[in-house]
Amino acid sequence: MKKLLSLLTVLTLVSTSALAAGGSVELPKQPWSFQSVKADWEKDKIYRGYQVATQVCMSCHGFKYIKHRDLMKVGFTEAEVKKLAEEMEMSVMDTFKSALSDEDAIAAYAKALPDLSVMNKARPGGADYTYALLTGYKEAPEGFNLPDTGSYNEYFPGHVIAMPAPLAEGQVDYFDGTNATVKQMASDVAYFMQWTAEPELTTRQQLGVYVLLYVFILAILLYFTKKRIWSDIKRKDTE
């Protein structure tokens, strides 16, 4: 039966990973700080991502689950949050709405444009995908049949994406003077979108270590208790 258990474990892992790896183009992996179990959200990177999101993305997309007040959970002070909201003529409790209404979007693109709050969880690859997509705009290769309404993107499934390249060098004036390259902006906004998609990520990862450690110790204690209790049975059997 030990064979059975180990075989089942292995087969389960193999079959599920085969299942998860359904993507077509291999996405380049970025070194995201949130991948460390100890990581906290980086306030400055969120701030830069926020600048890209509000100044670029939000002209067409919304973040309907996000309010300015949420930024206070990643280290912004109440005064900072209030100031940012006022700059956008919003209250701290207003959700991030797209500048483009759904009606206008339908008129222009024949569909409402997707909300970006949980986008990083809605695409295989998450932040890596967002980053790859934003930096993946290229000239279509020779002979590629690109329709007028689309742009060529290396990482978009099918390579024809309706969204024109959203980022251009120097598009955003970063609060900390960081050079706003396309790669920098893509990285910052993908990071910001990871936060909007799963704000609990860092808490979850930090807590998990303690929970698993606890269960591990408990399992060891239980193992020895079990051994102790069963010892008389085993002894009797060998007598």
């Binding site: 408990l218 204690l221 239980l222 020895f224 102790r228 209790i229």
Partner: peptide, 18 residues
């Protein structure tokens, strides 16, 4: 096994706390 069994006592307390 007796109530004073240190190992099972520890395990019980640890498990109950969790």
């Amino acid at each position: 096994h007796g109530k004073r069994d240190f190992l099972s006592g520890t395990t019980k307390a640890f498990g109950a706390a969790g």
